[in-house]
Structure formats: C-alpha cells, structure tokens
Amino acid sequence: MTQKAELEILLAVVDHGSFSAAARALGLTPSAVGKRVYQLEQRLRVPLLVRSTRRMTLTEAGQRYAEEARDILTRLTALEEDIADDTGNLRGPISLTSSAALGQLHVVPLVIEFMELNPEVEIEMLLTDKIVDLVAEGFDIAVRSGVLPDSSLVSRKLMNNRRLLCASPIYLERFGTPRQPQELTAHKCLCLTREKQLSDWGFTRTVSGISRLGPGFSCNSLEALRAACCAGRGIAWLPEFLVAHDVQTGRLRSILQGHVEPDAGGGVYILRPEMSYLPRRVRALIDFLADRFTD
C-alpha cells in the first residue's frame, strides 16, 4: 500500500471517528483499516490514536501528523489535477463565498460568465454576510468588502468600496437634511448591527463631539438597510455599488459626503488561503474577477 493510501485511511478514521465508519466510507473491512493504522504507527514508532469503545481521538503526535497529512494530500490532489488539466480545458470544482448584496449584484453574474466560458468547471457558491473561515470550511476563495483586517489570507484588491450617506427625499422632507455629522444623533439611523458611533460611519477626525448615532433600525443585512432607507425609515451609510442606481434615479439622496474619509469604506477584495500550489482553475477565476471588476 502506498503512503498516500495510508494517509487517506488515517484521515478517514479521524473524520468518521471509528475504524468501522472509516471502513464503510472507503469500501474496506474494519480489520483492514485497523491494520493499516497500526502499521503506520509501528513505522513512526509513536501512537497516533487513543482507542476507546466509543470514538477514536488523536494523540498530540497524531494531531500534528494528521494536520500535515491533510495539507500534503490537498496539495498533491491539486497538483495532479492541475497537471492533468495543463494542456486542456479548465475543469473541476471551485468553492467560493461572498457577502449577499455584493455577491448578487457583482459576483454571481461574473461567475455565470466564467462558467459559460469554462463549462467543465463546477462552482459551489455561498452567499452570506457572516465572515467564513476559508481554511476551516474548505473554501477556495472569498470576495469581501470593507476594511481588510490583518490575517494570514492572501488578498487582491478588486475595486474601492466607496460608501454613501443616504436618505430618501420623503425622510429628508419630513425630518430635515442634516448639515453636520453631529446632527445625526437626533435622526433615525439605519445601522449594521455593530455600528453605534458616528465614527463607525467613516467621518473625518476633524468632526468634533463624536457621539452615538441616533436610534432607528439595525440589521446584519445591507440589503435590508437599503430597503428601509428607500422606504423613508432613516439615514444609512451604504456601499455605492448597492445604491448607485437609487441615487441616480432620485430614490435616494446622498448627504454629508464632504465629512467622510474618502477611503473609509475600504475596498472589495478577493481572498484565498495561503498555499504553495494554487490549482489553475482557481487562479483563472481570480484573474477573471480581477479583470472584470471596475471602480
């Protein structure tokens, strides 16, 4: 049996929790699985698993070995797929995630175009406003907007993420148009769930008397905030890519822009885990998105 097969058996035991469950997944007998793990431990001269009647758990050495083995198998599989595809069409799976509004408006149409150009590529996409752990959940890439936090992920900027302070004409006629940021404390403010201070909306440091935003409506969805803003429920700080058409048609009006830092909204980025070998299909999708996104 090859070392690759040994690694696959060990990881199957780890993932399924027992020899019998791993055997069913691999199409082997439980005794064959147990024998291969025992032979691996004998060769390494260290126990990798703590055996119990209910579940297998990794020893400290087993934890280290399994983590490295998983990384090796992932890179080996990617290398084999890439070499097989090197002289032919792009093929194989790609998994990516994006925030809901950005994904629906920008990423999904481009992904569909990419798949039309590369019909043998299979794409699985998750739209969510939650921050997904790409490594833990096995995603190849993510497209996210905002200020990029420090992380071990490899990033590539696609465009600026300019944001606009907006309100509907109906709201402004009823409650008045604020001329200074401090006036927002007396207005109904539509905020992302964790936004509470005026400074969260990107105002310049010259704005004095920083205080809390006025109470209105908070939600974790930019689309929900846009809907509330268009319905005249208050003032919101929203990405230009989401409200540009509303502003152009007069459904929303932009206010207080001279008081906001130009780069306060950060950017739109494509992120991926750092790895020594990137499959050609993933690299092609990254380049495709970078070429199609424009400020």
Rank of each mutant, 00 (worst) to 15 (best):
T294P: 09
L184Q: 05
V147N: 13
E68N: 12
L126A: 12
L96Q: 05
S218A: 13
Q63C: 11
P47M: 12
G234V: 05
V14R: 05
Y171E: 04
Q104R: 14
F114L: 06
L105W: 04
W237E: 08
E223V: 11
D295K: 06
G267Y: 10
R205Y: 13
Y277Q: 10
A100P: 03
I123Y: 03
R43G: 04
G92Y: 08
E60M: 12
E67S: 13
M275W: 08
L271Q: 06
I123L: 08
P239G: 05
S211K: 12
G88W: 02
F241A: 06
A224T: 09
V207D: 12
V108K: 08
E60I: 11
R253P: 04
V143Q: 04
S218M: 12
R251M: 10
V107S: 04
L90P: 00
V107C: 08
T185A: 15
Q42M: 10
G176L: 03
I72Y: 11
R45P: 04
G202N: 03
R179D: 12
R24M: 07
H245N: 07
L76T: 11
V50M: 08
L198T: 00
F288Q: 01
G265L: 07
N89V: 15
L285H: 05
E68A: 15
S155A: 15
A227S: 10
Y38G: 00
T294V: 15
E68R: 14
G146Q: 05
L49R: 00
L73V: 01
I112W: 13
S52F: 07
I235D: 02
A69R: 01
G176D: 03
M159D: 06
L48K: 00
A5P: 00
T97C: 09
P178N: 02
E8A: 01
P47H: 05
I123A: 04
K188Y: 09
I83A: 15
V37Q: 01
A69Y: 02
S168Y: 06
F293E: 04
P239H: 06
S151R: 03
L289D: 06
I141L: 15
R75G: 03
F217N: 02
E124R: 13
D133N: 14
R253S: 10
P181T: 00
D291M: 12
E274P: 05
D85L: 12
V33P: 00
L117S: 09
K157C: 11
P178E: 01
R162M: 09
L48R: 04
Y277C: 07
G27W: 01
T128I: 08
G92R: 03
K157F: 05
E8G: 00
D133G: 09
C229G: 01
N161Y: 05
A264P: 07
D129K: 06
K130V: 14
G214C: 09
S208H: 15
L256R: 08
R51L: 08
C166E: 02
L73H: 05
E113C: 09
K130S: 15
T206W: 08
A228K: 13
R54V: 14
N220Q: 11
R156G: 10
I235F: 03
A231W: 07
G62E: 02
V121Y: 09
C230F: 05
G138A: 07
E68P: 01
S152N: 15
V247C: 11
E240F: 10
L58E: 03
S152H: 14
A12H: 05
R70T: 13
N220L: 09
R70C: 06
F293P: 11
G17I: 02
G265S: 07
V154K: 07
